[in-house]
Design a protein around this nucleic acid. Structure first.
Length: 593
DNA sequence: GCCGTTTTCGGCCCGACTGTTTTCAGTCG
C-alpha cells in the first residue's frame, strides 16, 4: 500500500465515523493522520519496516496498529466492520454542498437514502422537507447542490486560477469604497490546484461591496450573502468567495482567509495559550478587549513571531520554525537568471531560436538553453542526430546575433526509452552543453521497472537534469509509480539535477519531494519547458513550488550566478565556451533593454 | 484518537451564514 492509499483509507474511516456520529475529535484524528500521510516524503512501508511509524505526526497507538494491519494484510478488520454498520456509498453524499455528516445520517436513517441517486429521488419526491430540521428551502438547496455537483469542474489549475483572480481583483479595486482587494486561500498559498477562488477586501462600507459582488454580471447563482462574507457561482461552475472587513481589521481577515485551515488552528492554539482568542475580526484578550490589526505582520508579531510567507502556511512545521526564528530564506522570482528548458520551431515549439532568445533576454535572463525534443517515438517532431547537428549551427548563428547579452546553450530534451537507455548515443550527448532527460512514454510500467529505468538515466554521466521527473499531468493523470527514496538517493549520488517543471499542468517535481530533495542537498532546476514566448511567464508557478518546498536560491541551479552555473555544467561535461563578459556583468535583477 | 516546559487526563480554533427554529444545529472555511 502506498502513502496515498493509506491516506485514502483513513479519510474513508473518518467520513464513516462522522456519519455514524462518533465524537468529532476522533474523526479529526483520522483526518489529520490522512493529511500527514499525503505529504509524508518517505515511503510508509520503509518507515514501518524500520519501526518508525510514530514519526508520522498524528500516529499514536491505535492508528499505528491499524497501519500495521493494513501493510501486513492489505485489509483492516475495523474498517470492514464499520462498512457493515454504515454503507460506504453514504460518503458520496458529503460531496453535495450543504450536506455534512449529520444530514447524511438523517437522510439515511429516516428516509432510507444510501447513495446520491436515492438522495435525488427523495428530494424530487419532496420526502426530505418533512424530516426534522429540514424544510422546503433546505430541500431545494439539496437539489440545486446535486445539480451543481454534476457541472462542478475538478480542481482548477493554479495557472488557470490566477488570471481569473487577477481580473476579479482589478474589478474589485475599482468598486467604490474598496480600499484594498487581495487574493487569499489556496490561491495565495500557490497550491498546485485550486478549489474555490477566495478573495478579501478592505472597506468601510462592506454592504455596498457585497452588493456589487453578488450583482456582478457573470454571477449565475448566489450561494450565500452576508455582511462580511458572500459566495457566488459563475456559469462555468467556478465558485468565488469574498470576505470584507474594515481596513483596520484587514490583517486578521487576510490571515484567516489565507489559511490553511490547519495553519489557522495552529496559530489560534498558540493565541489561546497566551490567554488570547484570534479570529478574522480581531485578537481578543481575557477581558473581551479587542485589538485590531491592519496588517498580517502585526498579527504574527502579536503572537510572538515573524510574518510567515503564505506558501509555508500548511502546518508543516512553519509555526514552530517561526517561533524558533528559523524560517527559511525562500527563493524569489527575481532570483531566477536562466531558463534551462525551452523548445523552438526545430521541434514542437512555435517560436524561433532567436525569438526565444530575445524574450529570455527581455526577462533579464543571462542564459537560455535550447532543449528541443529528441526523436524516439516520433513525438513532437523530435530531432534526429543529423538535425541536432544542424541545429547547433543555427544556435551558433543566433548567438552571434545576440552578442554577449545572453548565452545560448546548445541542449536537448532527450527521451528516456522504455529500457532506460537514452535516445542519442553517448558521443552525441558529449557534444552538447546541457542534457535534460525525460520520461514521455510507457509511464505505466510497474514501480520496479520504471524506477530502474529512471535510475539508469540518472546515472548516465552525460545527463545533467531529469525533466519533469514523474510525468504527471494535473489534475488527473498520476505520475509514474516511482520509488522516490531510490530516485532521490540516486540523484544525490550521481549529482544530477531534478527539474521543477513550471508548466501549470505539470508542477513536477512535486513540492513534497522537492522539499525532501532540498534537504538532501540535491540541486534543482526550475524550468518552464516553454514552447512559446508566453509560456516563459510560467516561471512564477515553478518558483511557487520551490517556495512551498522551503527552497532557497542555493538549491536552484538557475538562480545561481552564470559563472557558478557554468562551473557546474563544466564538471558535468559542458562543451561550450566560457561565458565571456557575462559573469562580470551579471548582477541580480538587472534587465537588459 | 492524539497529545503534553502550564496537563499522562482533559482538553482539542473560531465565527459567518442559513434555515428552521423561538434559541439552535449544521455546514463551511
Amino acid at each position: 500500500m502506498t502513502n496515498q492509499e493509506l491516506a485514502d483509507t483513513f479519510e474513508r474511516i473518518a467520513n464513516l465515523l462522522d456519519i455514524k456520529g462518533e465524537i468529532v475529535y476522533k474523526t479529526l484524528a483520522y483526518r489529520r493522520v490522512a493529511e500527514n500521510l499525503r505529504v509524508f516524503p518517505e515511503d510508509i512501508n520503509t518507515v514501518f519496516k524500520e519501526n518508525r511509524l510514530a514519526e508520522v505526526p498524528g500516529v499514536g497507538k491505535a492508528i499505528s496498529e491499524k497501519i500495521t494491519e493494513l501493510l501486513e494484510t492489505g485489509q483492516l478488520g475495523f474498517l470492514e466492520r464499520l462498512k457493515e454498520e454504515v454503507p460506504l456509498s453514504l460518503i458520496d453524499l458529503l460531496q453535495v454542498p450543504d450536506v455534512g455528516p449529520r444530514k447524511a445520517a438523517l437522510f439515511w436513517k429516516q428516509a432510507g437514502v444510501t447513495n446520491l441517486a436515492e438522495l435525488d429521488t427523495a428530494a424530487r419526491a419532496g420526502k426530505l422537507r418533512a424530516l426534522p430540521g429540514m424544510g422546503e428551502k433546505s430541500e431545494a438547496r439539496i437539489l440545486s447542490g446535486l445539480e451543481a455537483l454534476g457541472r462542478r469542474s475538478k480542481r482548477m489549475l493554479l495557472g488557470t486560477a490566477w488570471p481569473i483572480a487577477r481580473r476579479w481583483l482589478d474589478w474589485l479595486r475599482q468598486q467604490p469604497g474598496v480600499q484594498r482587494a487581495e487574493a487569499a486561500g489556496s490561491l495565495r498559498r500557490w497550491r498546485s490546484t485550486i478549489g474555490d477562488l477566495d478573495l478579501v477586501a478592505a472597506s468601510d462600507h462592506p454592504a455596498e461591496v457585497m452588493d456589487a459582488f453578488i450583482h456582478h454580471p457573470e454571477v449565475m447563482r448566489v450561494l450565500g450573502q452576508g455582511e462580511n462574507k458572500s459566495s457566488i457561482e459563475l456559469s462555468s461552475g467556478l465558485k468565488l468567495q469574498l470576505w470584507v472587513q474594515p481596513p483596520q481589521r484587514f490583517g486578521t481577515l487576510w490571515v484567516y482567509a489565507t489559511g490553511s485551515k490547519d495553519h489557522n488552528v495552529r496559530i489560534r492554539e498558540l493565541a489561546q495559550k497566551k490567554g488570547l482568542s484570534l479570529s478574522e475580526q480581531a485578537l481578543v484578550d481575557g477581558q473581551g478587549e479587542e485589538t485590531l490589526y491592519d496588517s498580517e505582520e502585526k498579527v504574527y508579531a502579536a503572537l510572538g513571531f515573524p510574518w510567515i510567507p503564505p506558501e509555508l502556511r500548511e502546518d508543516r512545521g512553519e509555526v514552530q520554525a517561526a517561533k524558533a526564528g528559523q524560517l527559511p530564506e525562500l527563493l524569489e522570482l527575481s532570483d531566477i537568471r536562466a531558463e534551462l528548458h525551452a523548445h523552438s520551431t526545430w521541434s514542437d515549439g512555435v517560436e524561433t531560436i532567436e525569438g526565444m532568445a530575445q524574450a529570455a533576454r527581455g526577462r533579464g535572463y543571462k542564459v537560455l538553453a535550447i532543449t528541443d525534443h529528441s526523436g524516439g517515438l516520433g513525438i513532437a517532431n523530435g530531432l534526429s542526430v543529423e538535425r541536432l547537428c544542424q541545429q547547433k549551427d543555427a544556435i551558433q548563428l543566433a548567438q552571434e546575433k545576440m552578442g554577449d547579452s545572453i548565452r545560448l546553450l546548445n541542449g536537448t530534451e532527450v527521451d528516456i526509452m522504455a529500457d532506460g537507455s537514452i535516445y542519442y548515443p553517448d558521443e552525441v550527448l558529449a557534444e552538447l552543453d546541457i542534457v535534460i532527460a525525460s520520461l514521455h512514454a510507457s509511464l505505466r510500467q510497474p514501480r520496479q521497472v520504471i524506477t530502474a529505468r529512471l535510475l539508469k538515466a540518472i546515472h548516465n554521466p552525460h545527463v545533467d537534469i531529469i525533466g519533469h521527473p514523474s510525468g504527471r499531468l494535473l489534475p488527473d493523470r498520476e505520475g509514474a509509480d516511482l520509488d522516490w527514496e531510490a530516485v532521490l538517493a540516486g540523484a544525490k549520488e550521481s549529482g544530477v539535477a531534478l527539474e521543477i517543471n513550471a508548466d501549470p499542468v505539470r508542477l513536477d517535481l512535486d513540492e513534497v519531494y522537492a522539499r525532501r530533495a532540498a534537504e538532501m542537498g540535491i540541486v534543482m532546476s526550475i524550468a518552464t519547458d516553454a514552447h512559446s514566448i508566453e509560456s516563459l511567464e510560467h516561471m512564477e508557478y515553478g518558483v511557487a513550488v520551490a517556495r512551498r518546498a522551503w527552497c532557497g536560491p542555493g538549491s536552484v541551479l538557475n538562480a545561481w550566478p552564470a559563472e557558478k552555473l557554468v562551473g557546474w555544467l563544466k564538471k558535468r561535461g559542458y562543451s561550450g565556451e566560457d561565458i565571456r563578459n557575462l559573469t562580470t556583468k551579471d548582477t541580480k535583477n538587472t534587465k537588459i533593454s
